[in-house]
């Protein structure tokens, strides 16, 4: 399963990093605490959060995450979007809240396994 698959299945908006839509997804993590994500998310995970500032890209890059999905229609700040484009790690956006979105992602990713 790749990032493009969840974009299509969940109708997500691609805010930035479209050059990384073919990145492989193997799981996910939902949290708004950066150290929690740093300590517990893993490579090729999709990260669900409401944080929109540039540091989310530092985490995504260091952890080699597949993509970030912002909830409740949030959009990345300009410098976060810029780094997302540079690194080819997509930032996506969903109109849904974290609970609903995480539930759907969990189902889709597990079905694909």
């Amino acid at each position: 399963m790749i990032v493009q698959d969840i974009v299509e299945k969940l109708g997500l908006k691609v805010c930035s990093g479209a050059n990384g839509l073919n990145r492989e997804i193997e799981g996910g993590y939902t949290s708004d605490l950066l150290s929690d994500v740093m300590g517990n998310a893993d490579e090729n995970h999709v990260w669900v959060t409401l944080q929109t500032h540039k540091n989310i890209m530092a985490i995504a890059s260091l952890k080699e995450l597949a993509a970030i999905v912002l909830v409740k229609g949030y959009e990345p700040e300009a410098d976060a979007a810029e780094q997302s484009n540079e690194e080819g790690i997509p930032i996506l956006s969903s109109e849904e809240e974290a609970f609903e979105l995480t539930g759907k992602l969990y189902e889709i990713i597990n079905q694909a396994k």
Partner: peptide, 16 residues
Amino acid sequence: EMGFGAGMGLPNIKRN
């Protein structure tokens, strides 16, 4: 508010 300062930094360092 930025999602830092959860008191997990030093414990994360120790674990890793």
